[in-house]
Design a protein around this nucleic acid. Structure first.
Lengths: 345, 345
DNA sequence: CTGAAAGCGCTTACAG
DNA sequence: CTGAAAGCGCTTACAG
């Protein structure tokens, strides 16, 4: 005999009563409850997860699917760790565990997700790194399992998402550049079908238009999440007949190569080229001159994800009103010296 | 009706047969199996995880517990992502899923682990960031659940561990310094009770002794995983009557502060102080002068962890002989320019 | 090769 | 307030 049956036998009561006591149900004698809790504690008893999930039809587990890849698009690892930590502070209150599901780089992310979903392995799911077209969203919607995407997508509608405020970052950056007198402003976009690439691209066009600046596709380059790509960016832009005097970078690492390559060509970042980067990642925290970029509170992101998810789980939805939402936690400018220059006269 | 019962009804056969077909049991008619597999595929059926785990007494899931904290000791996030990816390439072959269990910074790591263990939520577990004294090991041993630690500990014995080869790194670094003529060699150790701190400390003493150099506790400092601590390191060491001419760093980030502070004091890293750091993290990949450090294959670590764990799961142990092991994947020196200097004459 | 049935360890109406 | 019993969705001896 084991588990709850063993406990029940030791205490001379039924398994049903033990279960009710353990689960905090009302209508259990206070003394009985005390004895049960004490026995469970002293023996380190915890209900078998599978049995409990099967009986209740709920796992008390939330999945957070991330992609494992050298360049996992929108966010890096420091980013996620902070988000996990914040999310769990909220989930803890409801005895929900967070399981991180790292989709291996050699597996298809749709198939990977489908496995967990069709097995009913979690009560809710967070999907990171959404694609412009992302069939995972359709999959989740037809599954009926509550989910929130970290990132928007053009696939589907009527689901909750939390995203970084790329729009504000791009607008702020362009405004800053323009205020300094820059009129040729370049942009690096992420490679591939990650959704925020479109968002940034469009915000960029709109910001330019707002300032009466012409959109020039030669100023828009694609980079991977690798420093090396910065070298190519410099070479390509300087080869233009009218090179840009400012640039906004989506991937911070690009700045490393840009700094290096500029210097190899006798130019200085922050003097001969104004640079603003999207996120204040630790990786480039120490670059000189310091990079102007945007801070995003990982706490905000984690908490928003948790709330958006809980709002969809019937048991908790009363405590988290709002229903289906789309939300972008604020970004704040971190002024560095990389953009503290006017365009050459 | 749902799940396997629904499938069985549609096909006009019993649930037992469906189950056997799905699970690849022998003694199933080839045509029957084909029909079952086809129906399951087309309907996206996958066995309910909880029911399967309960019936089989196995979850087909492996947990990998990590700590969420600004300074999670031995390894950083890039490190883990690479390890997860490699591990899953091995686990995939056996249809085992990897669940990352990120212990929130506000929770006690023992209690956190105990919850998953006593619920039988996983078939095996990896424990990262082992402490000098680590009660989690005792917990795992008494649970009977196969586990491997990533890092050694003085707690317990007879369990499998994989660790980084701190010994070789320290020895190699000291040998390099000594070959250059350095005789006053400083060391930074991790703060707290993380186990590798002791390992490094002891290796350092032994390496010094081997070269007939005296151990001087003034040369051994403690740092957090933060760049700022590098400033203090420089100040404290230069205040000594006989400052060191070389230093080995456990946390790469320390190098940032050291470089900065040296320069503030009119000194140059790699010229006035020889520096070697432990691991080649992306964060400091672009520091100038480049940091001499050690490369560790994350693939090696991930694969070793998977093998060591599989060796303990009865179902797979035949394919992974070796039983209980302790293993340190090799480190290889990545020579930079930060230690390319002789001590001042 | 297949079906009927027990069992995995819980939870939860239902009586009392 | 508590017990007896059914049921969650699977798997797996056991017959045949």
């Amino acid at each position: 005999m084991k588990g709850i049956a063993q406990l029940a036998q030791q205490l001379g009561i039924s398994t049903g009563t033990v279960s009710r006591a353990l689960n905090g149900k009302p209508d259990v004698n206070a003394e009985t409850r005390r004895r049960v809790l004490e026995a469970a504690r002293s023996q380190g008893y915890a209900p078998n997860h599978a049995a409990r999930a099967l009986a209740q039809g709920a796992t008390h587990q939330v999945g957070f699917m991330i992609q494992l890849a050298p360049e996992n698009a929108s966010s890096n690892d420091y980013f996620f760790m902070g988000v996990f930590d914040a999310m769990q502070r909220v989930l803890d209150k409801h005895e929900l565990d967070l399981l991180v599901l790292p989709c291996p780089s050699h597996q298809d992310h749709y198939t990977y997700l489908q496995r967990f979903v069709s097995r009913s392995a979690v009560d809710g799911m967070i999907l990171a790194s959404t694609m412009r077209t992302d069939p995972r969203i359709t999959l989740m919607q037809s599954s009926g399992i509550p989910f929130v995407t970290l990132g928007r997508s053009s696939t589907g509608s009527g689901y909750s998402w939390i995203d970084l405020d790329f729009e504000t970052a791009v607008e702020t950056a362009i405004d800053r550049f323009v205020a300094r007198g820059h009129r040729r402003i370049a942009l690096t976009l992420p490679d591939g079908e990650i959704n925020f690439g479109s968002v940034v691209h469009q915000s960029y066009r709109q910001a330019l238009a707002r300032h009466g600046l012409e959109y020039d596709e030669q100023l828009v380059l694609t980079t991977h999440r690798r420093e090396d790509d910065g070298d190519g960016v410099v070479d390509r832009l300087l080869a233009l007949s009218a090179p840009p005097t400012a640039i906004f970078l989506m991937y911070e690492l690009t700045a490393i190569g840009i700094y290096r390559r500029l210097r190899e060509r006798g130019l200085e970042p922050g003097r001969d080229l104004a640079i603003i980067s999207f996120r204040d990642e630790p990786t480039i925290r120490f670059i000189e001159p310091s990079l102007t970029c945007f801070h995003i509170s990982l706490d905000d992101v984690g908490i928003a994800l948790a709330h958006a998810l809980l709002a969809q789980i019937p048991q908790f939805s009363k405590a988290y009103p709002g229903g289906i939402i789309g939300k972008r936690p604020p970004v704040t400018l971190v002024a560095g010296r990389s953009d503290a220059c006017d365009p050459p006269a």
